[in-house]
């Protein structure tokens, strides 16, 4: 039996929160550089240059990449025969609070959605997702997601007969309506299958997966199709017009009931801030 200390996991969470707030992942930067190459609009190119320059400035000066420093989600994947000693939820919470203070992050959470909506003051509580994997290895991930792109996410329970074409129509309808408000070029996380709530979680997890080619040939083709379709919309970088509206898509799929085809689209802005590490 492997025992992980909640306290030391908390320290890792804190450093991940600090890192992702100011340092954009290599995979995202690479995707932005590629988008810059491919962009046809000169304004779109100049916006992409500013986005890349912003990442440099944020890293050098230790400033947040975006003023919306996001809602933190902590993912803990426990490997086989692994458990946690201590109060993990409390450690995750205090880790986010410490990172918020240390990096002068914006406090963007409100306590009571339908009531007074009083700010919690330190970006707590974070969302925590704990899962048991079937591998030996354990992993810890942190994602910070802004409110603008979160507001653009959608879920749909499609009839099974709708198939992949139905999924594409759902994605495109959503993007047409709200994609320009979510700070393109976007990254799309698609959760397919599971159940209503599971699809939504899968869609978020999909954003945690590094950008690049999917090892699953079929999913890889579909991800590519999503990117190409999204790039037809014309929103362009910064939603100021252009051909680069999307820099990546990841799909996660799980078994579902024969009567359903749950699909969730989790839209990330270009400042996709997340990191997953082995522990």
């Amino acid at each position: 039996m492997r025992i992980l200390s909640a306290k030391s996991l908390g320290k890792t969470i804190e450093s991940l929160c600090i890192e992702i707030s100011s340092i954009l992942g290599e995979d995202v930067l690479r995707a932005l550089e590629e988008a810059l190459e491919a962009e046809k609009s000169s304004r779109g190119k100049s916006v992409l240059r500013m986005i890349i320059e912003n990442a440099k400035v944020a890293k050098e000066l230790g400033l947040p990449i975006c003023q919306d420093t996001g809602f933190f989600t902590v993912f803990l994947d426990l490997g086989i025969d692994t458990c946690v000693d201590g109060d993990f939820l409390e450690e995750a919470k205090t880790a986010v609070s410490r990172a918020t203070r240390m990096c002068a992050l914006r406090s963007s959470l409100v306590r009571d959605p339908l009531g007074e909506r009083k700010n919690t003051g330190d970006n707590t509580p974070p969302l925590v997702v704990i899962s048991k994997g079937s591998e030996r290895e354990s992993r810890l991930g942190v994602m910070a997601k802004g409110g603008g792109s979160e507001m653009a996410c959608r879920i749909s329970m499609l009839p099974p007969g709708a198939g992949w074409d139905g999924v594409l129509c759902f994605v495109m309808e959503t993007l047409k309506r709200v994609g320009a408000q979510a700070c393109p070029p976007l990254v799309l996380g698609l959760g397919v299958g599971g159940s209503f709530e599971r699809a939504a979680l899968l869609s978020k997890r999909a954003l945690l997966t590094p950008l690049g080619k999917n090892v699953d040939e079929e999913l890889s083709k579909r991800e590519q199709e999503l990117v190409e379709l999204a790039n037809e919309l014309g929103f362009g970088p910064g939603a100021l017009g252009g051909t680069a509206s999307c820099i990546g898509a990841r799909i996660l799929s799980e078994p579902c009931h024969m009567a359903t085809l749950p699909v969730a689209l989790n839209i990330s802005c270009h400042a996709l801030r997340r990191k997953l590490v082995s522990i």
Binding site: E53, V57, P64, S107, L240
Partner: peptide
């Protein structure tokens, strides 16, 4: 309109900020 998600860069185009009302609203 201006570009979202480049807050570090745009912060360099602001010479000053002061709260003028409703401090209880936090950010």
């Amino acid at each position: 309109v201006t570009i979202g998600g480049i807050g570090a860069l745009l912060g360099q185009r602001v010479s000053g900020i002061e709260t003028i009302a409703w401090e209880d609203l936090g950010p």
